[in-house]
Design a protein around this nucleic acid. Structure first.
Lengths: 128, 128
DNA sequence: CCGTATCCTAGAGGATACTG
DNA sequence: CAGTATCCTCTAGGATACGG
């Protein structure tokens, strides 16, 4: 597959594909939830503890969306107190690899980018 | 590198890395601009024509951010009328591969996800 | 031709309180 | 324990108009 063909995956349909995926995973908590669930089933509270800063509301919304998309499965046990466990589905697991690639890119180029920003800002705003 | 270690790239620092990259490329037009520039230098107007739906304002903002991050270089020629050309930098080019992986994932699983959503919605909202 | 300035709106996401 | 409900704020992004 040529570079050109591969790039067409991004802009082929006027960007609809890439935009859909970014709407899905581009929000604040989705990839964090997926990564945290990567190797074990987990309860709501466990997730909240392992994902620093997430509120009940946002965790709930994120899980609901992931469940709707079929990336996460939810199992409720009829117990008292209630117990609910979440885990990645097979499809959900396939998301980890591309997500990690992106994270690798980020780690690898973070310093470059920060330096570039500083140079840019220094040039643009020599005042103050 | 184990799956566990790779996943740590995502949540290792409390998600800061993945969030930074998503703030960078998770917006509406960035990846589209990068993909469009993948193989040739291009003028502002060319970009606008090849990216359906982008406004002057958003294209301008997106290019400015990409320039600041060092992913795109901007060359202005002192002519009348003015001519400005944009192209990917070396760092910018390295973003294409992980972005394409993500797009591949999207294409591959889009149908699955849509079916899952329909089943979910049918279960949740049998009313109306 | 290549932008910036201004104004506006929808929705993402936080804080807090309440419930089966 | 595992969530909803409510309220609020802030900003991404669209529309439009203007300027070098």
């Amino acid at each position: 597959m040529s570079t050109y063909e591969r790039t067409c995956l991004i802009r082929g349909d006027g960007g609809r594909t890439i935009r859909r995926i970014l709407e899905r995973i581009g929000n604040k908590w989705t990839l964090l939830v997926v990564a945290t669930l990567h190797d074990e089933r987990m309860r709501f509270t466990d997730l909240q503890q392992r994902i620093p800063g997430v509120s009940q509301r946002m965790l709930s919304l994120t899980l609901r969306q992931l469940e709707r998309d079929g990336l996460v499965s939810r199992t409720a046990y009829a117990e008292v107190p209630p117990r609910v466990e979440y885990e990645l589905t097979d499809v959900g697991r396939t998301l980890i690899d591309p997500a990690v690639r992106l994270a690798e890119w980020a780690v690898e180029h973070d310093a470059d980018i920060e330096r570039s920003q500083q140079r840019y800002d220094a040039r643009q705003q020599p005042d103050r």
